[in-house]
């Protein structure tokens, strides 16, 4: 899932670098506030632990083996902001020292795995605080689905054309990988808790439950949308064409006299995609906000 350089088109990597840099600054400030000074070496050493843990093979199925990716486990141990920072350090080290993932694509990889991946892991931990096993499994599952789905979407945006069958196959493989990550995360976290329950007691309980629910709904929409898009690309394309046909006159009408230069094609497309994501996320957020408020009141 580490995207090397030259796979993403310039607008995509530039935008994601621009998004990831301030986000990492914010995460780092937050982590500094949350952590006492004694835990600073711990973050680095646990980053090294995740590196080493990736070398331990877990048998899954006939003759195949998998390894832990670690984002969800770090989140359960450290809490969201320190875990995101530790993942950033891991990804940067992989890019510079091992040429695993690009340097220009560092923003994209950090965004996929350290920011969105850790967020997707933290939400189920927060929501299923009472049922820890469910939370741990879902944390592993959604962190992988989120990172892999975003990486796939970015590659597609960059104009890498994939036959629809291959796309469906890779989403299927991601789902299997996500289930494996969830199972391994659960097993390892349980084993660590047996050694010392204090070690996995990250402060995942803070923060508003309502907002966690809303964001989790948005994550669900993205992941389900990925399945829908891969199983029926033609249908999604048709919806896109329909929306384009019907939306363009409405959007263009007020600007017809001004002949506004809307910019090159990639800008229009990215803007449309961003707008679509905001719309979907917004409606999911609004719906779950009302649902959750009704339930909690």
């Amino acid at each position: 899932m580490h995207i090397p350089d030259n796979f993403l088109s310039t607008p995509v990597w530039l935008t994601l670098d621009g998004v990831a840099a301030p986000a990492v600054l914010w995460v780092s400030r937050r982590a500094r506030k949350e952590l006492d000074e004694a835990r600073i070496p711990l973050l680095g050493v646990l980053g090294a632990f995740v590196f080493a843990a990736q070398m331990v093979n877990f048998p899954v199925g006939v003759g195949t083996s998998a390894h832990l990716l670690g984002g969800a486990l770090l989140t359960a141990i450290l809490g969201p902001a320190p875990a995101a920072l530790a993942m950033t350090a891991i990804i940067a080290t992989q890019a510079f020292v091992f040429q695993d993932g690009g340097v220009l694509a560092l923003g994209a990889n950090v965004f996929n795995m350290a920011l969105a991946g850790v967020l997707a892991a933290w939400l189920p931990l927060r929501l299923f605080a009472g049922r820890r096993s469910v939370g741990l499994f879902l944390a592993g599952f959604f962190s992988v689905m989120m990172s892999a789905g975003l990486a796939l979407a970015e590659l597609t945006f960059s104009g890498i054309q994939m036959p629809s069958k291959l796309l469906a196959l890779s989403v299927g493989l991601f789902a299997v990988g996500a289930i494996v990550e969830g199972t391994i995360t659960l097993a390892v976290a349980r084993a660590i808790e047996r050694l010392n329950p204090r070690w996995t007691g990250a402060p995942v309980h803070q923060g508003s439950r309502v907002w966690a629910g809303i964001t989790f709904a948005a994550v669900l929409v993205v992941v389900l949308g990925l399945f829908a898009a891969s199983s029926a690309p033609d249908g999604v394309m048709r919806i896109g064409q329909w929306a384009d046909l019907h939306a363009r006159p409405v959007l263009a009408a007020p600007m017809a006299d001004y002949s506004l230069p809307l910019g090159p094609l990639w800008l229009r497309r990215s803007a449309a995609a961003l707008l679509g994501l905001c719309l979907v996320g917004g409606s999911a957020a609004a719906a779950s906000y009302f649902l959750l408020r009704r339930r909690s009141s």
Binding site: V24, S28, P41, L43, G44, V45, G47, A48, A89, A92
Partner: peptide
């Protein structure tokens, strides 16, 4: 903080591996 962590990570990477 990130640089400090990356430094510790690199220093103990081979020890723990």
């Amino acid at each position: 903080l990130l640089v400090l962590m990356a430094q510790t990570l690199y220093r103990y990477l081979f020890v723990i591996s």
